[in-house]
Design a protein around this nucleic acid. Structure first.
Lengths: 149, 149
DNA sequence: CTACATGCAAACCGTTTGCACCCTA
DNA sequence: TAGGGTGCAAACGGTTTGCATGTAG
C-alpha cells in the first residue's frame, strides 16, 4: 500500500489553500508538459484534445487564481497579443521567440542585474523588475524564410 | 518670402508617399510633443482636447499605415495591455515604467548587444532584436506607495 | 479625376464577469 | 453542508474592417 507520489506540480494547490479540482489538476498537467508558456486558449485546446471537458472561462479563472497564489506566472512575449502562463518555478527566466514559427524557448542567463543598478542610480527609480524577450529566426526557419510580412 | 520650414516630423509623410492630411499631421504633432510613446486613445483624446476633429479608427488606421512606412513605431510596455506608438527616431530605445503612476521615461543605454551574440551562439538562432522594459517606482511614487494591488 | 484617406458603425478577439448550479474539504 | 469552483452566456476593452463619402495630388 505505497502512497502514490503526487507529481510535484500538484502540491502547490494544497499548499496555497486552493481546492484540488479535476480542472486545476488538468491545467497544471498541461503547463508542466513543456517548458514554454501557454496561452489560455492553448491550454483549453490541449485539454479538449485530451478528452478533458472544461470551459474556457474556467481556464482563465483558474490560471488567474493560481497566479494570485504564485503557483503560475503570467508573461507576455513580443509578437503575441495574448497573455501566456507557465508554472512558477521561481527562477528568473527570459524567452527567445521565433518570429516565423512562434516557437518559444527559454534562455538561461540574464545579464541585466548590473544594468538595473545603474539605471536606478541615474534615475532614482526603485527598480522592481524588467521584461526582456529576444526574437529572431530559429534554425529551422532560417532555411524556409517566409516572404516578408 | 521665406519658405516656411516644415517641422521635421512632417517630412516623413511626403518621403514615404503618404498623403499629407490634416489628421496625419495632427497625429504626428502629438507624437512629437513628448518623448514617450502614446496609446491610440491618448492620441485621440489629446486631439479632441486641441479641438481637432478626428475619428478613433482614423487614428488607428493612420498609425498603422505610418508604421508600415516606418514613420512611427509600435511598442508594448509591461503593465499596459494597449499598444503604444512613437515617432520612429531610428534610435534603439527602451523604457522605464512606473508601476504606480504609469509614467514612462526613456532610458538611453542598452546593454544587450553582447548578450545577443552569446545567445545566438548557444542557440543557433538568427537574432533579430529584443524587447526590454524596466519597471519600478518613480521618485514621486516612492513617497506615496499605494496599498498593494 | 482618381486613388487614397476618412467617418461611422459593426465586427472581432482576448479576457472578464454575473449568476445559477456543483462539488471538494 | 458551507464556501469555494465551474459552466454558460453576456459584457467588456482594445483594435480592425466594410462601406459610403470626402479630398489630396
Amino acid at each position: 500500500m505505497a502512497n502514490k507520489p503526487a507529481p510535484t506540480h500538484l502540491d502547490p494547490l494544497k499548499q496555497s489553500g486552493l481546492k484540488n479540482t479535476r480542472q486545476r489538476k488538468a491545467i497544471l498537467d498541461i503547463l508542466a508538459s513543456g517548458n514554454q508558456p501557454f496561452a489560455a486558449e492553448d491550454v483549453y485546446l490541449s485539454l479538449k484534445q485530451n478528452q478533458v471537458d472544461i470551459n474556457l472561462s474556467t481556464v482563465y479563472r483558474s490560471l488567474e487564481t493560481m497566479r494570485e497564489k504564485n503557483v503560475v506566472r503570467k508573461v507576455s512575449v513580443a509578437g503575441d497579443n495574448r497573455m501566456l502562463y507557465e508554472l512558477n518555478l521561481h527562477t528568473h527566466q527570459h524567452y527567445l521567440v521565433c518570429v516565423q514559427c512562434k516557437k518559444i524557448c527559454p534562455v538561461g542567463h540574464c545579464p541585466l542585474e548590473s544594468f538595473e543598478k545603474s539605471v536606478a542610480q541615474e534615475t532614482n527609480y526603485t527598480i522592481m523588475g524588467h521584461r526582456l524577450d529576444i526574437y529572431g529566426l530559429c534554425p529551422d526557419c532560417q532555411q524556409t524564410r517566409q516572404p516578408d510580412r
